[in-house]
């Protein structure tokens, strides 16, 4: 059963335009001009229960706007959204009790009080009994290794601890749909790994559906089998992460070490030669001609060692964002 159904969803914002300088300011004051920004355009997808899906896109691609429509914070201009059997914008309490949103750059905890006080508020709001609340706080703080940190004011916590406490607050009501917007933003590598591990464990333990955006590809590769890619408000890819790399990065990197030096001229017939250094060389070879090229290298040249690897995923995604013209 699909937990999330998005059907031809669009959101258009009016944004006031102001030119620089004093004249621009005056015009802006007396006669305001607006530009219609198409933040999300005709996006459709479905996510099954228990899936962990990565939501990729450059800054301003429309990820956060889409998440806001999925959580019912903003009203879609057109199209249909259904999450856990509800229309999000109606904000029924049965819907709100099933979902959560974590934003890496925003916090819901009360800054001047210990996190435990904020948890009490959430407990009362979601109607969690004191016993269940204590149990869940205990369980989640153990999973997040936050014991002993919850009684000091939130402002005294480190960024990593605060993010973990935010996660704890967001998950107290045991939501089964999680929307995570940059949950590891600004965290150091250890804290990133801890949050990632926690999310994986939470997903397995509670069978929760997760939609995650992140600029750290490591988050996506560690957690998501499937990714959605959005570019200028449009969905340009929906499928497995592996296929994304295969499909949009048709080249492989081949590194060869030779028994004797060859000239660049001699080597250039075997592939797109990237660099030559004494007795080693690096080629980029098209996926479809890979085996042929390797066989030819091995047959013609005196090879000591040969390795084939994928280019780093960050580079692939980066190239995709720049190109932006990929057909889904």
């Amino acid at each position: 059963m699909s937990t999330i159904v998005v059907d031809h969803l669009s959101k258009i914002y009016p944004v006031a335009v102001k030119e620089a300088g004093f004249k621009g300011t005056l015009t802006h004051f007396f006669k305001r001009t607006y530009r219609q920004v198409k933040a999300v355009q005709d996006v459709s997808f479905q996510i099954e229960s228990g899936e962990v899906v990565g939501f990729l896109g450059a800054n301003g691609a429309g990820k956060t706007t889409a998440l806001k429509m999925l959580t019912g914070l903003i009203h879609p201009t057109s199209g249909r959204v259904e999450v856990a059997g509800h229309i999000p914008f109606q904000r029924r309490s049965t819907f709100l009790s099933k979902v959560t949103l974590v934003m890496g750059q925003k916090q819901q905890l009360i800054w001047d009080l210990p996190a435990l006080d904020s948890f009490k508020i959430n407990g009362a709001v979601y109607g969690i009994s004191d016993r269940a609340l204590n149990h869940r706080v205990g369980e989640l703080s153990e999973m997040l290794s936050l014991q002993g940190k919850l009684t000091q004011p939130v402002r005294k916590l480190s960024l990593g601890e605060r993010m973990k406490a935010e996660l704890l607050a967001a998950l107290l009501h045991e939501p089964n749909v999680l929307f995570l917007d940059e949950p590891t933003l600004g965290l150091d590598v250890n804290a990133q790994v801890a949050v990632r591990e926690f999310l994986r464990e939470y997903n397995q333990r509670y069978g929760a559906t997760v939609l995650l955006t992140s600029h750290y590809m490591a988050d996506i590769t560690a957690l998501c089998k499937r990714v959605l890619m959005i570019h200028q408000g449009q969905l340009i890819y929906d499928g497995s992460l592996d296929r994304l790399v295969d499909r949009f990065s048709p080249c492989r990197e081949v590194k060869v070490e030779f028994a004797r030096p060859y000239s660049a001229h001699e080597l250039s017939v075997y592939g797109d030669l990237q660099d030559v250094e004494k007795q080693s060389a690096r080629f980029l070879v098209q996926q479809e001609g890979l085996t042929g090229a390797i066989a030819k290298i091995l047959a013609d040249l005196q090879v000591v060692d040969l390795t084939v690897s994928d280019p780093p995923i960050e580079e692939v995604i980066g190239q995709l964002f720049q190109a932006g013209t990929v057909a889904g």
């Binding site: 959580t71 019912g72 949103l101 934003m103």
Partner: peptide, 13 residues
């Protein structure tokens, strides 16, 4: 302005 209302809107109260 800061978008903090978002968290409040997500709670069933």
């Amino acid at each position: 302005l800061e978008g903090k209302l978002s968290f409040r809107l997500l709670q069933p109260i």
